[in-house]
Every structure is written in structure tokens, then in C-alpha cells.
Write a protein that binds this DNA or RNA. Structure first.
Length: 462
RNA sequence: GGCCCCGUCGUCUAGCGGUCAGGAUCCAUGGUUUUCAUCCAUGUUACAGGAGUUCGAUUCUCCUCGGGGUCACCA
């Protein structure tokens, strides 16, 4: 059974990078009919908040990433950690260290001055005298002093660390008794039955420490997959400063969940030349062995392209529902199909699409002067007036083609080019030179509104 | 600085000793569209550098350079 997990610390919203590792973990579990677990790493009481944890859950919900089973909260597992710390103490694999923070700082400064690497010197490793007064000890694990630690990584391959280069007897429990990150991660991953750890490669250098914990506890290590970072345009680790990294901000900007998922799955992962992946295809095709080794730069050009792709391919009734978040109630609009069909090819975001809807359904109050100048000629009023008369008296006027026929009649009778009526009519209806097909626009707003807008335009510009 | 990871078009990537180095995006041009957008077609642009190994290296090895990550009683 493949068990993956996502283990955020609730210190803020869910960001793009976290979402991508969550997605990878989710997909790999689903692909293998396994489990995708969620663990909230809320041991840092000062920085954690309930709101942040809720924000992560909200983002998961929006994107449809469902986790399995109950959520594990590390803050509720003190007894479990205490038990394993005691076990290591009893077995002599960990020990109390009475060095004060000041002493430790001093040691580090000396080491830096001597250009040595900063590390704990192990002075209490075999201590069995009487401990100094007034010092609450930390608990340190006995890490190997020599030999290699090999991280067998599904993305990076085998990475070998020399114990003497990177290890010291690191702290597993603070003076207040609370356990530290590298300890609880190993304990939880094992206890939760996690078999595949998929996380950012900024954790690669933590992994040897976790392996030390696994070994001391006699736990089997999971498989690791360290996925490369997402960088900003400066090539640095993506951070909250880099603008829109809050996943929920994408909802507000009018991106669809499927867009974001598709965009992220292709950032650092690929399946041949395929660019478009439905959720089902992702679940079917994802494999961490196809994650590439190098960091990728976060760039939203493709995000926009994907979003317009998905908008174009979303059924109108779904689109209408998605547009409700912008205050548009189109579900019962009688020309909904024409309206959305005309607009879905033109918008990069849902928000933009909502704006386009408003542009059509609102009577223009402003006319682009350059457009007026270009479109309105001496015979324009005459042309528009004839068109207006014809639609006023016309029997059937519902479909775009009905309006088109009348435009055609005017063009034929007056022996003019199509642009002679099209350009001024466009300005009259929309106040500018660009927009959807006029026959569509008129069908959407209807006869009365069409007449009103033409009349307005003639009054203003004759 | 120590340790670790990485290096193909601007960007996302394919490639797993022999390819005109492919796709996507972006950009440009042309076509379609009365306009704009869509759509279609075409085009510009890449193997960081240097040594090896090999009949042959983008691909394997080493070095250099460049970038990133990490070195806590944070996670």
C-alpha cells in the first residue's frame, strides 16, 4: 500500500510550492490506490494559527484534493513523542545535555573564528557526573560519528552524506520537553505508515538527520522523493514576497481549479509532450520518476493560456455558476448560451469574462472618441436610421442570424460595404471598436435595447 | 565558508551515444474575422565552458564556471 502525506506547518496560507508537492503526493497515492494523509505540523505555538490551518483546508477543498482519514495534528501527540524520547533515553541512544544557550553560542563563535564547521561538540554524550544546577537540559540523540548516510532518493538518485561532514548530536527535545522537527517528522511518518515522502528538495539536507532517528528507533525508512524548488524570476526560492503565491488568490483572479492543477503538474513534471491533463489523466499518468531534477522558474504565461483553454472547454451552465462569484446571475438568462458562447473564447480569466458580460449588458455611457471619429461618416446617421427602422418593424427577431439578415438588407439596399454599417453600429452598441460579433450582441440585448443604443448614439453624434 | 543539489530555446519541458535537437508558451509575420479575440499556417531563439572516454557525444567521466538549497532548543 502506497501512503503519501502532505505536512504543512500552519504559519500562513497555502502557497504555490506547497500545493505542488501536495498535488504530487495526492496523485501518487491515487495512482496506486493508496492513501493520501494530511498532517498539520503545529508544534511551533508562537507562529501557528487555526486560521492558517483552515486556509490550507479551504484551498484543498477548492481544488478538490481530498485527503484520506483523519487529519493528524502534531500538537495533540505530545505523549507519543515523549514515549519515544524516553525509549531512546532508556536505551542510551539519547542523552541529556546541560549546556546553556550561552555556552553553545560561545562554542559556535569559536568554531567560526577557527573556520571550522559549527557543531555541538558532544561534551555531555558520555556524561555521568552530577549535572550543573539551574539548567533545564535538552535531549540530544547520539548520531553516528563516522560513516556514510545514504539518502536513496527517487528524484535525485542516491545522495551520500559523510557523517563527519554534516552530523552532530542534534537536539530532539527542547529544554521545555517539546520535541523538535526532525524527530517528530520521522516518528510521525513511520507511525502513520507513510511509505513515500514527497517534499521540496530544501529538505534533502534534513533527511540524513531523520534517517538517524529512524535508525535509532529501529524504524524502516520510507522512500524519499525530493522535488526541486520553484524559483521566482530572480532565480531564488519562491517566497511570499513574490506576489501571488497564495493559492486562493488565484480563485479571486478568476483562474479555474483545473487550470492551476494542470499548470502545477507540468512544473517540474512531464509526460512526453502532453500539456493538457484532466484530473483523471493526472491520476492515471503521474509518476515521481518523471519529476525532473532542476528547479523551475515560476512564470504565469502558460497559466493564462491554460485558463483560456479551460474556459473555452467548460460547459455554459458550469461557467454561469462560476461567474456567480462576480455577482452575475445568468443561470436563468434567456440568451445565456449565446452570451457565454460569444465570450468564452475571449477571456483569459473568469473575472475578465465577468467584465465582458457587463460591457455587453450595460448601455454604454461613454463612447471612445477615436472610434467615433473613425466610424462615423457623413452617411452614418442615414444608415443607422434605416437599420433602426427595419428592426423596429421586423416580425421575428431572436437569433443572431435574424439581425444579420437585416444588416445584410441595409447593405444591399444602400449598396455599401459591410464596414459602413458594422463600424458605427459597433460603436453605438458597445461604445468602442472591438468586441464580439454584432449579431450576437443584438440577439443578447434584444430589440428594445438595440434601438435604444442606436438612438442614443445618433443623438450624441449627429 | 562546509556539505548537498542542479545547468537543453526568454519561460515550461522531450531527449536516456548516431535526431535537420522535438513539443508547448511567449514573440513576430501571414490567413480567417466588417473590428477585437478565437482559430489556422509560417518563422526567430537552446545543449554554460574546457578536457577526456568513444568510430561518434546534448547524452558517460573529470575539472572550471554559474545558479540554488542547507548548516537552530523554526518547521
Amino acid at each position: 500500500m502506497v501512503v503519501t502525506r502532505f505536512a504543512p506547518s500552519p504559519t500562513g496560507y497555502l502557497h504555490i510550492g506547497g500545493l505542488r508537492t501536495a498535488l504530487f503526493s495526492y496523485l501518487w497515492a491515487r495512482k496506486n490506490s493508496g492513501k493520501f494523509l494530511l498532517r498539520i505540523e503545529d508544534t511551533d505555538k508562537a507562529r501557528n494559527s487555526k486560521e492558517a490551518a483552515d486556509a490550507i483546508l479551504e484551498a484543498f477543498k477548492w481544488l478538490g484534493l481530498e485527503h484520506d482519514g483523519e487529519i493528524t495534528y502534531q500538537s495533540q501527540r505530545d505523549e507519543i513523542y515523549a514515549k519515544y524520547i524516553k525509549q531512546l533515553l532508556d536505551e542510551g541512544k539519547a542523552y541529556r545535555c546541560y549546556m546553556s544557550k550561552e555556552e553553545l553560542k560561545e562554542l559556535r563563535e569559536t568554531q567560526m573564528a577557527n573556520k571550522q564547521r559549527t557543531m555541538y561538540d558532544g561534551r555531555y554524550r558520555d556524561f555521568n557526573g552530577t549535572p550543573p544546577e539551574g539548567i533545564e537540559p535538552v535531549i540530544r540523540i547520539k548520531a553516528p560519528l563516522s560513516g556514510d548516510i545514504v539518502v536513496r532518493d527517487g528524484v535525485k538518485g542516491d545522495t551520500v552524506f559523510k557523517a563527519e561532514d554534516i552530523l552532530d548530536d542534534f537536539v530532539i527535545a527542547r529544554a521545555d520537553g517539546s520535541p523538535t522537527y526532525n524527530f517528530v517528522v520521522a516518528v510521525d511518518d513511520y507511525l502513520m505508515g507513510v511509505t513515500e515522502v514527497i517534499r521540496g528538495d530544501d529538505h534533502l539536507s534534513n533527511t540524513p538527520k531523520q534517517i538517524v532517528v529512524y535508525d535509532a528507533l529501529g524504524f524502516k525508512t520510507p522512500n524519499f522523493h525530493h522535488v526541486p524548488m520553484i524559483h521566482n524570476s530572480e532565480g531564488k526560492k519562491l517566497s511570499k514576497r513574490d506576489g501571488a503565491t497564495d493559492v486562493m488568490a488565484y480563485k479571486e483572479m478568476g483562474y479555474m481549479p483545473q487550470t492551476l492543477l494542470n499548470f502545477l503538474v507540468r512544473l517540474g513534471w512531464s509526460h512526453g509532450d502532453q500539456e493538457i491533463f484532466s484530473m483523471d489523466e493526472m491520476r492515471e499518468l503521474f509518476d515521481p520518476k518523471n519529476i525532473n531534477k532542476s528547479a523551475s522558474i515560476y512564470n504565469t504565461e502558460k497559466l493564462d493560456w491554460l485558463n483560456s483553454h479551460y474556459i473555452k472547454n467548460t460547459p455554459n451552465n458550469e461557467l454561469a455558476k462560476l461567474l456567480e462569484q462576480y455577482g452575475l446571475l445568468l443561470t436563468s438568462h434567456d440568451k445565456k448560451e449565446i452570451l457565454l458562447d460569444a465570450l468564452k473564447e475571449r477571456a483569459k480569466t473568469l473575472k475578465e469574462m465577468a467584465g465582458l458580460v457587463y460591457e455587453i449588458i450595460s448601455t454604454p455611457t461613454y463612447y471612445d472618441q477615436a472610434a467615433v471619429k473613425k466610424a462615423f461618416k457623413d452617411d452614418t446617421v442615414e444608415i443607422l436610421t434605416l437599420f433602426k427602422e427595419k428592426i423596429t418593424t421586423s416580425e421575428e427577431l431572436h437569433l443572431p442570424s435574424d439581425y444579420h439578415h437585416i444588416m445584410q438588407e441595409v447593405v444591399d439596399e444602400m449598396k455599401i460595404g459591410f464596414g459602413k454599417i458594422g463600424q458605427p453600429l459597433r460603436v453605438a452598441l458597445l461604445g468602442k471598436m472591438s468586441g464580439p460579433g454584432l449579431d450576437n450582441v443584438m440577439a443578447i440585448i434584444g430589440r428594445d435595447e438595440t434601438i435604444l443604443r442606436i438612438t442614443n448614439a445618433i443623438d450624441r453624434h449627429s
